[in-house]
Amino acid sequence: MSKLAITTTVNGDPAEFLCDPGETLLDALRGSLGLTGAKEGCGSGDCGACTVMLDGAMVCSCLVLAPEAEGRKIETIEGVAEGSVLHPVQDKFLELGALQCGFCTPGFIVAAKALLERNPDPDETEIRYWLAGNLCRCTGYDKIVRAVQAAAAQMRQEGVSA
């Protein structure tokens, strides 16, 4: 089986990789592209640890075929900070202790940023439902929800768009 050559954009930069037709985007990111921030917790789209943005839409990269990345724009956890400046969601996760083991954290941060891009002022219920596709086994979600609320408040105050 010959490999497919894929040309795509990852975190704003042009990227190319070879993949088998059945390979997942998650495997291509973690393998060929060396971006291991997206994690595989289940491989079935149930845990959200592999969450990335594909043309601005939040997806589980374990459910996307790698060849589907052709000509699209992918954003991963590695692109959330601007250089060495953390995104407010990252800052608030640190400041409020919203991670324990940290394995689910990249998925939560990508998802939370996507939420705040849609709605800069979500209430607790919206945050909880938006993040319901991301499993965390350590925190009980309390501090994660508070971190997203705090990031939203800071971004509104500073007039930062997500």
């Binding site: 291991t36 921030g37 994690k39 956890i77 590695e78 959330v80 400041e95 202790g97 940290g102």
Partner: peptide, 21 residues
């Protein structure tokens, strides 16, 4: 007190290396 954990930034930026990484 509640300072930021020393390993925190690596974990919110996707740099931390876990078992499968």
């Amino acid at each position: 007190t509640r300072p930021v954990r020393p390993d925190g930034v690596e974990k919110v930026t996707g740099k931390a290396v876990y078992g499968p990484d």
